[in-house]
Design a protein around this nucleic acid. Structure first.
Length: 600
DNA sequence: GAGTTTGAAACT
DNA sequence: CAGTTTCAAACTC
């Protein structure tokens, strides 16, 4: 089987290399100041999803992405033997440069002091490799198609963003190497005039921001409709919140989960662990509010949805008041622990006792995680599968919201009627689905029986009636069904311990779906509302079917759906899904990777 | 803040 | 794989 790795490791051709070197983008990159090596700081929150998010496929092979992304893995622990063991075991065929790349996925290399460094050579190589891969497929449309892997890992918007980017680049006669250096590549087209340092890292950040900016004004920027990607209002909102005091960031980020996802994938390389560590250090020294974007991102990933919720609801506003897990017996090494489940280390705000979920116990954490994953490959995958576009959800037709996302496994509520946060579906802001075994479902976001999506008003009324006893009004579904919910982010991030096939499964759940979202958004930008609805429904349906189809084999096996088999997607399917507008493109990317590897 | 309820996760 | 136990969050008072 021809694995992506092979492709990546292809010998670069002088021509392609030259091509890249001569490109404005490359020149731009070269003109940038080298990234300054930052001291690697062991950070408690090191395994932020950002850090482990699978590397952009473009730079790394799908397998790499699959394996590397342990959320638990810390950024800076490149030297950690345990990490190496795990990684090496998983990354047998990984090119050296990638293997050594603890920081993240791509080019940033780890220096002796643990810092990640982006070198021109690296960038160049990335481009070279990628160009090489695409050397015979000049048109960027093809590039996009071929870079499905990237799309997979990338945020739903990645494809969009990248497409946009390519388009722009194309306009400027610039030939880009696909993928990998996405962030860096984006920078040149950025509109931002931020005074940030010019180091590669900053550039990367800016690239992301830029993209965010683009997303941010989906309706305002008529000139670049294709780049318009309505936010889905999730993690990035959190990011924005986290960094609201950061002028540089707050003003640019006013969006969304979609972007968030994008950040994960795209920023993975952008956020070297070292940077994260630095950010954390900064946070510790100066407080969260001082935290730079990267920190904000870290925070987002670090905190499970629940945490976030608590932050905002319970604690109120200050991040300083954030409260995390409160485990007493699980040692924070079981899914009971929200931190652990979210793939983050426990930190100071946690009230846990005898906590092992700390960098210092990384080995234990990884081992435990691995064990849990062996039991349930998707244990750390996002619990909610979001398949629709936030635009729809938060748009005029809120009633569509529930249909757009579903709890992966479904709930099993017996007494809460899915009206309280005991219910994971409800808590996630999604409706119950056929996967749920709940009794007396009254989920305001959508009932299992299907009456769910009739409309929030109706639901609301019903809920109000039923909840009258408690006097509590059933909370309206959040504008963003999955407020600050982990899933999105984590999907792509999934543990790197996973087998390629497992990883692909996750992609199936997340990235691919998100990708579809992005395309949907894209399409929607040019369609009438009714048309959008139709398409949205259709696609949501498709996704649903896709998820439950024998092909994907994602159905839970046990009554409780606790164990999920891995999807089997062959390249044929991949191809099939590919090329037809967004939807196909999305799903197509899924198989690009690990699907190539044998299932088990 | 303590106690209760709830349902997921883990265990048998 | 069903039943039971454990666990910690959500909730109530």
């Amino acid at each position: 089987m021809d694995t992506p790795q092979k492709t990546v490791t292809q010998i670069e051709t002088p021509v392609s290399k030259l091509k890249v070197e001569n490109s404005p983008v490359f020149n731009y990159i070269n003109s940038l100041s080298p990234i300054t090596t930052v001291k690697s700081i062991s950070n408690a929150q090191t395994f932020s999803s950002l850090s482990f998010t699978s590397p952009p496929p473009v730079f790394t092979t799908p397998h790499v992405a699959s394996h590397k992304g342990s959320r638990f893995r810390s950024h800076s622990n490149s030297s950690d033997p345990s990490n190496k063991v795990v990684e090496e075991a998983l990354l047998e065929k990984e090119p050296p440069q990638i293997l050594n790349n603890e920081c993240l996925t791509t080019t940033p290399r780890v220096t002796n002091d643990g810092a990640c460094e982006y070198g021109e050579t690296d960038l160049q190589k990335m481009c070279d490799d990628n160009v090489k891969r695409k050397s015979d497929t000049p048109d960027w449309e093809t590039l996009i198609s071929d870079s499905s892997d990237m799309l997979i890992y990338g945020s739903p918007n990645d494809s969009e963003a990248f497409r946009c980017f390519l388009q722009r680049s194309s306009d400027s006669k610039t030939r880009l190497c696909d993928g990998g250096s996405k962030p860096a590549l984006v920078a040149p087209v950025s509109q931002s005039n931020e005074p940030e340092s010019s180091d590669a890292l900053s550039i990367l950040h800016r690239g992301v921001r830029r993209r965010c900016l683009d997303f941010e004004m989906p309706r305002n920027n008529n000139q670049t409709p294709r780049c318009v990607v309505p936010s889905i209002g999730l993690h990035l909102n959190a990011i924005a919140m986290s960094s609201k005091d950061n002028n540089n960031v707050s003003k640019e980020y006013s969006f969304t989960g979609n972007v968030k996802v994008g950040l994960q994938s795209s920023t993975t390389p952008v956020l070297p662990s070292d940077d994260i560590g630095r950010d954390n250090e900064i946070r510790e020294a100066a407080g969260v509010e001082e935290a730079p974007l990267s920190l904000a991102l870290v925070e987002v990933n670090q905190s499970s949805p629940k945490k976030k919720r608590r932050k905002s609801e319970q604690a109120g506003e200050g991040e300083s008041s954030c409260k995390r897990c409160n485990c007493k017996k699980s040692k924070c090494l079981k899914l009971y622990c929200e931190c652990f489940a979210a793939g983050v280390y426990c930190i100071e705000p946690c009230s846990c006792i005898d906590c092992f979920n700390k960098p210092i116990h990384e080995d234990t954490v990884l081992a435990t995680r691995k064990q849990i994953e062996s039991r349930n490959p998707l244990a750390f995958a996002p619990k909610v599968i979001r398949n629709s576009d936030s635009t729809i959800e938060v748009g005029e037709d809120a009633s569509k919201t529930p249909a757009s996302a579903r709890h992966k496994r479904g709930c099993n509520c017996k007494k809460s009627n899915c009206l309280k946060k005991y219910c994971e579906c409800y808590q996630s802001g999604v409706g119950c689905s056929i996967n749920c075994r709940c009794e007396g479902c009254k989920n305001a976001f959508g009932r299992k029986d299907g009456s769910s999506f009739a409309g929030m008003d109706t639901e609301q009324d019903q809920e109000n009636e039923t909840s009258g006893k408690s006097g509590t009004t059933i909370p309206l579904p959040p504008s963003t069904p999955m407020p600050l919910r982990q899933p999105l982010a984590q999907l792509p991030i999934s543990s790197n311990n996973m087998l390629p096939s497992q990883q692909s499964q996750q992609h199936l759940h997340g990235a691919s779906l998100y990708n579809s979202q992005s395309f949907r958004k894209q399409d929607m930008g040019l369609m009438s509302h009714s048309r959008i609805e139709t398409i949205a429904e259709e696609r949501a349906e498709d996704i649903e079917n896709f998820i439950h189809s024998p092909v994907t084999n994602i159905n839970a096996l046990s009554p409780n759906s606790k164990r999920v088999s891995l999807p089997h997607m062959d390249s044929t399917e991949t191809t099939h899904w590919r090329r037809n507008g967004g939807r196909k493109l999305l799903l197509s990317s899924i198989p690009t990777f690990p699907s190539l590897t044998p299932h088990h």
